[in-house]
Design a protein around this nucleic acid. Structure first.
Lengths: 338, 338
DNA sequence: CCACATTATGACACCGGTGTCATGGTCAAA
DNA sequence: TTTGACCATGACACCGGTGTCATAATGTGG
């Protein structure tokens, strides 16, 4: 063989027309069983593979999904949030299972990424993954919708289109954390995360937490809350500032595991014992969580199911099927930190 | 607009031919500056994006690389080794920087994956990433080479083609671990990993370790070695078996961080103090390493540089340029476990 | 004023498949 | 034998760009 074999080469060697080769290789019922077999054999011998570009061009679809990862712009450049890495892994698997390829790309939230992948026919649909500043995304969502781009979104809600979102029941998770503290007689609670609505996921976690406390006649003092983004560093500093201001508490709910890990470091430094003096609960159940000291009690988001749901829903959208808003149940995993 | 705009639409509105549109959009010097601008404006207005399939088909290249991740078949299905996840992150970044898309795919080592991506013109080249059973891969490597598929490989060497490999200086890393123990007067050493040549990376780490010990007149008893694959579980069990056999040692070199973490768990359970009774050194410097208790001393592999080198070398191969075998220097990071 | 280089553009084949329509052959019913 | 249904296959346009060649317009030197 000089270059790569084409369907014409197969046709030549199999003694049929190129049309028949194309049909045979896709197991069309139109071709005779015997010729089908012959074509397959020749194709195998010549190590022939259908040219995806030609095929995609003709059929106007790509059997490919694009995953856009939005990183917290302030996070360390070299480290990706392990929670997203886990999601990435499960999305990859789900795609493979469905026979789709996955294009992965990192984006800064501000960039002009709308529809780039789908318009250029590189992918049939898009999965958006990221924490945080989703509010800025609404105009972009709108532009995606206008162009009829198929996409699903982790966490953030798209105006008027709950079906495009897959997310964990953050509110319910927050409630579980509160219930856990109440059950262990810790009612002097602090919260570290972002209780504003800048970060809808953190906000929902806090709301659930607060509401469940209230249901048990416990209020959370605003002074016992500190803002943090989802990094260990940020959690560390937020906790230090609480300690520095001489705020007392015996339970700490962190909006993510990384924050919780940073918080524990700060507490240890201040010689505050975990869980004896302060019980700590995180959110996500990242791989690290069970290895830190003490092992972190946390609200698990099931990334395997989440990835599957994202892919499944997106494929439904692509096929024009109905999709329902998807809320995944979180699960409290009790470990040593509480 | 009915469907997506094509270059003919742009041509129509800009009052030029389709050829000129194509040239203008790629900023060919052949088109007049004024028309170039006009075409760009129209394209922007119509939200036009070049159809990658058509473009790729014509130019016979895809501006896409494929990343094949081979998982340790025995490892837990839901958890990917964090080291590879880190690599994945850095490869993604390196691709983006070079203007390439990245197709990610998980493969079992046994599957018939050779050349699939490149033959079908979905990717211009392939990056192979995985631990372990690379020996079975040699025939596959051969088949890739025969088909002139461009690929690079992490860790494993390809027969007679050292230029296709990017890897950490595992041997040197092993030596550093030994030197570290010697410097701290720990000469009763154990090793957990795979000292056979089934796993070339682990093997090299062990060789370096052993040789450096020998250079200091220290030998390592074969009874003080246990096999493990790169999971926490495996490290835990291997260490337990050493302890159960009443093997005594005051230094432990684990072939990977996950193994080391499992080892520490086993040691703790046996009430053996780390680092007081046994100093532990791992390999990789995964994100977890600094959070475990005690923080793990480890030999860092710089994943950022590794990802960059893989991508850079692959692109060189694709462009037909000369590539050199690439050995990355490891770096010992001393923490609390030693 | 003509020959020739230079610049900007258009026409057209081509990449390698897929889908539609036309065609030849076989067979059963009329 | 003719008609029509049915099956297997071939011919060909088409997807939406890119690269080559031809051509028209303009400039430049002798």
């Amino acid at each position: 063989m000089k270059g790569k074999a084409t369907s014409f080469d197969i046709a030549h060697y199999a003694g049929v027309s190129q049309s028949t080769v194309s049909r045979a290789l896709r197991n069309s019922p139109l071709v005779n069983e015997e010729t089908r077999k012959r074509v397959h054999d020749v194709a195998k011998q010549l190590n022939y593979k259908v040219d995806k570009n030609a095929s995609n061009l003709r059929t106007q679809q790509s059997s490919t999904l694009a995953l856009l990862l939005f990183e917290d712009p302030t996070s360390d450049d070299s480290q990706i949030n392990p929670f997203f890495l886990a999601m990435l892994g499960s999305i990859t698997r789900a795609c493979a299972k469905e026979g789709y390829d996955l294009l992965v790309s990192f984006q800064s939230a501000s960039a002009d990424w709308q529809a780039d992948y789908e318009d250029s026919h590189r992918a049939d649909g898009i999965i958006l993954l990221g924490y945080g500043d989703y509010i800025d995304f609404q105009p972009k969502f709108k532009s995606l919708l206008e162009q009829n781009t198929k996409f699903v979104c982790w966490g953030a809600t798209v105006d008027n289109r709950p079906d495009l979102t897959v997310c964990c029941d953050n509110y319910g998770g927050g409630k579980q954390a509160a219930a856990h503290f109440i059950a262990h007689n810790r009612s002097n609670c602090a919260f570290i995360g972002d209780a504003s609505d800048h970060s809808p996921e953190f906000f929902a976690r806090f709301q659930g937490f607060k509401d469940e406390l209230l249901a048990n006649k416990v209020t959370i003092n605003e002074r016992k809350m500190a803002n943090a983004i989802s990094t260990e560093e940020s959690g560390y500093h937020a906790t230090r500032s609480l300690i520095a201001n001489n705020i007392k508490f015996n339970a700490l709910f962190a909006a993510s595991d990384l924050i919780a890990i940073g918080a524990i470091r700060a507490l240890k430094e201040a010689n505050i014992k975990v869980p004896k003096d302060v019980a700590v609960v995180g959110f996500d159940n990242i791989a690290i969580a069970s290895y830190v000291n003490p092992p972190l009690t946390t609200i698990e988001q099931n990334t395997t199911v989440a990835g599957q749901m994202l892919v499944e829903n997106l494929l439904k959208l692509i096929r024009g099927e109905e999709v329902q808003s998807t809320l995944l149940p979180p699960l409290l995993i009790a470990r040593g930190s509480s």
